[in-house]
Amino acid sequence: MRVFYAALFVVLAFAGQASADVAEVYDFATRAEEQRYQQLISELRCPKCQNQNIADSNAPISKDMRDEVYRMMQDGASNDDIVGALVDRFGEFVQYKPPLDKRTIVLWAFPAIATLGGLLVVVGVIWRARRRGGEPALSAEDRARAEQILASQSKSDRQR
């Protein structure tokens, strides 16, 4: 058990280390400002490491970007200004949320299109089932044949 606690201690100690690498100490006047900062850096993507946001990334470029976000916030810039300033330098790639414009309209509309398409299929299936509802699933001839097959089947079962 003691070994377990020792191991746990080591793991926790290093876990703390890993996150401490990233977190710089910034002072914020209010709690809301700090949350705004956290929100911003979690929505911006690191150009170097590609699949990390700048909040998680250890890359020097991410640190520069966090510094810039903080500096602009202290200057009273709005979220759009801050994201815009970084997009002007690094391109739209740094935004996890692509802006809604002509090129991205298909991307944004796709969930709605897919849902609508799925609904149409479902409606079509139901509608067809309804229309066919009046007539029996098997014609009289088919039914007679099916009964014959079933009868011979059970006979052979009994003989076994």
Binding site: P47, K48, P60, I61, D64, R89, G91
Partner: peptide, 12 residues
């Protein structure tokens, strides 16, 4: 400090 690099969008 990499300020011009930052303005040029240098990421590596």
């Amino acid at each position: 400090k990499g300020t011009l690099g930052f303005d040029l969008g240098v990421y590596g």
